[in-house]
């Protein structure tokens, strides 16, 4: 089939509704160029990687960007690389499906990958990205608790250069991030797994799949013998942003994850909740489930740290 659609006449027949407003589509080849474009514009800007949120907002007229900056033409955005220290660097356009096909990444960080894998359908997994999930700013984002529990950082590139920021410092509230005008995330850094560590993510949804978390919980811990020496416990969907619950970590550090420690963990997880009350879950329900999920996720992470197959 030759280019039968390539004429001005057929182009006029296109199905795109004309709202009378233009959108500029940019394809920069470096993050500094992407930042410069975003800095220079006075209108609404969106960065495009997987597009599974941006295109839905575009279609529903929630957000009509004046400038859409497609960052997939930048070198390295699709790369999953293991660093010399054993940690991982992920390009910002790496899709969920590419993570779930990466056996070595899953072996190191099963919980982090599980969180990403819970987002949407097979089709959505073909495009959706960790950074998109983070920057969309949903308190219920499934991949974010796992990233925070793992201690991930991101490189933020802006007009003044690049800096590293902890993932938990990116969300500012529903739909909002701490990124300033002209700033964008240019890399995800996952720490080295190291010895005797394990992580896990669980969420509650009313259906069996493809739903938004009512409560999510990620646990990452390390053991020496049977004793937990390090832990990070993170709750999702129970506050305006993801919550790193230090009291919950303290509750299990030094323990063998016995019943007393688990009960203290559940209490701390529940206490950290500041959830909304809506048709998908009441405040009381979300608080209760937070404790239950924290216990279960901790048990899975503990099992993984011990090398038990789960």
């Amino acid at each position: 089939m030759a280019s039968f659609a390539n004429s001005k006449d057929s182009a006029k027949l296109g199905g795109c509704p004309d709202h009378g407003d233009l959108m500029n589509y940019h394809t920069p080849t470096s993050f500094s160029d992407a930042s410069a474009i975003a800095s220079a514009t006075s209108g609404v800007t969106r960065f495009l990687a997987g597009g599974t949120d941006v295109l839905v907002q575009l279609r529903s007229d929630l957000v009509t960007p004046d400038d859409l900056i497609d960052i997939k033409h930048i070198e390295g955005v699709k790369d999953i690389t293991q660093r010399a220290d054993g940690g991982w660097d992920l390009g910002v356009a790496v899709a969920g499906a590419e993570m779930t096909e990466h056996a070595a990444l899953i072996a190191d960080w099963p919980g982090l990958v599980e969180g990403m894998d819970l987002i949407g359908s097979t089709q959505v997994q073909g495009r959706a990205t960790l950074v998109g999930n983070l920057c969309n700013g949903s308190p219920a984002a499934d991949s974010v608790p796992g990233m925070v529990a793992a201690g991930c950082t991101v490189t933020v590139t802006g007009p003044d250069g690049s800096r590293k920021v902890a993932v938990e410092d990116i969300p500012a509230g529903p739909g909002r991030t701490t990124l300033q005008k002209g700033e964008l995330i240019s890399k995800v850094h996952i720490p080295a797994r190291g010895e005797n560590g394990g992580d896990a993510y669980l969420r509650f949804i009313p259906r069996t799949e493809m739903d938004i978390a009512v409560v999510g919980c990620a646990v990452n811990l390390r053991i020496e013998g049977d004793i937990i020496t390090e832990a990070r416990v993170v709750m999702g969907a129970v506050a305006p942003t993801v919550v790193l619950v230090n009291d919950a970590a303290t509750a299990i550090i030094g323990s063998t994850l016995d019943e007393t420690a688990l009960d203290a963990l559940a209490q701390a997880a529940t206490a950290a909740c500041n959830p909304i009350d809506d048709k998908r879950g009441t405040i009381e329900f979300r608080k209760d489930v937070a404790g239950v999920l924290a216990k279960r996720a901790a048990k899975i992470a503990y099992g993984r740290a011990k090398g038990e197959a789960q």
């Binding site: 089939m1 030759a2 280019s3 659609a5 390539n6 001005k8 057929s10 182009a11 296109g14 199905g15 795109c16 004309d18 233009l22 959108m23 500029n24 589509y25 295109l55 575009l58 279609r59 859409l68």
Partner: peptide, 15 residues
């Protein structure tokens, strides 16, 4: 088959 088309920046691949 190689195909060429002209599209609006907002137009989806579906359209």
């Amino acid at each position: 088959d190689e195909v060429e088309y002209l599209c609006d920046p907002r137009e989806t691949l579906l359209d």
